[in-house]
Nucleic acid binder design. Structure first.
Lengths: 150, 150
DNA sequence: ATTGCTGCAAAACGTTTGCACCTAT
DNA sequence: ATAGGTGCAAACGTTTTGCAGCAAT
């Protein structure tokens, strides 16, 4: 579908040792890049099944990790024991604000966070590969968000 | 065990509606506050079992969430589909650096992150309850950390 | 007396694995 | 020819749930 993304994935697979270029992997890539917003691996599997794909669940899970490794996707975790993926090809880096009531996810980007992360990693002797900044709270969206007063 | 913590938990249970004060809950509280470092709910359950407690797994899981709600514990998630808890009673707030190779977790605190989070939440109309800043990378601890070159 | 809590076991959930067959290299 | 990938189903580990009896209010 997307030539540039295909090219990046292909090169990633070629350069990583022992990775083969298969039609199934590109099928997963296409479906993943078409997904709007955040999605779980199983969401994608179901969606592909509904579209009459016969790529297996195992292949979907494995391929999504490969796509995250080559940074076509970003793997996110908002503290609910569910890995979510997000297109990282079209958009710039950003972080998330999660509503604990209704699950709504807002996005923001804050200049300087990257630099803070780099600095801390350097200070502590880590070879940084990424960071995640999640803010938790309750949104004020009356239509979606039941305000339990917990 | 710890009078001040007990008091806080007791008040939390009293003030929240429909929460009862039971011996099992304080048994879990004591065991949790004694745990050094990060622990999973099941870790605590096993440890209590080994100490001849007969509090059930269900009660441990439920009580840990209550303890996180009243901020005696902090619930963490480092993206590996496992909820970890950490004593939040004795220590000040801090964030984490996670080694993707060996799982080692380093801690840091960075002044200003709290303020950044507050500001962003305010801007986006969220009622903030907390934030998490995790940095991922590889540590340089030769003894623990196999440096696969992925 | 009410209704929340408990222990137990079973189920649920997302994810990973073992296997035999297949296919890219 | 080799070794990595595939689909399938079963297994995994963590967490949640249904239930009958129990206990805090």
């Amino acid at each position: 579908m997307n030539i540039e993304a295909q090219e990046r994935f292909r090169n990633f697979l070629k350069n990583a040792r022992n990775h083969r270029i298969t039609p199934e992997r590109f099928e997963v890539m296409d479906a993943a890049l078409q997904f709007e917003g955040h999605f779980g691996a199983d969401d994608l599997y179901i969606k592909m099944k509904n579209n009459h794909s016969n790529v297996s669940r195992a292949t979907v899970y494995k391929t999504l990790d490969l796509l995250a490794q080559c940074e076509l996707l970003t793997k996110r975790n908002f503290g609910d024991n569910l890995n979510r993926f997000e297109n990282n090809f079209f958009r710039s880096n950003h972080d998330h604000l999660v509503c604990k009531n209704c699950g709504k996810i807002a996005e923001f980007s804050h200049p300087g966070l990257r630099e803070v992360a780099n600095q801390i990693a350097a200070d502590l002797g880590f070879d940084i590969s990424g960071y995640s900044f999640n803010i938790f709270g309750k949104c004020k969206d009356g239509t979606k968000c039941r305000h339990t007063d917990e």
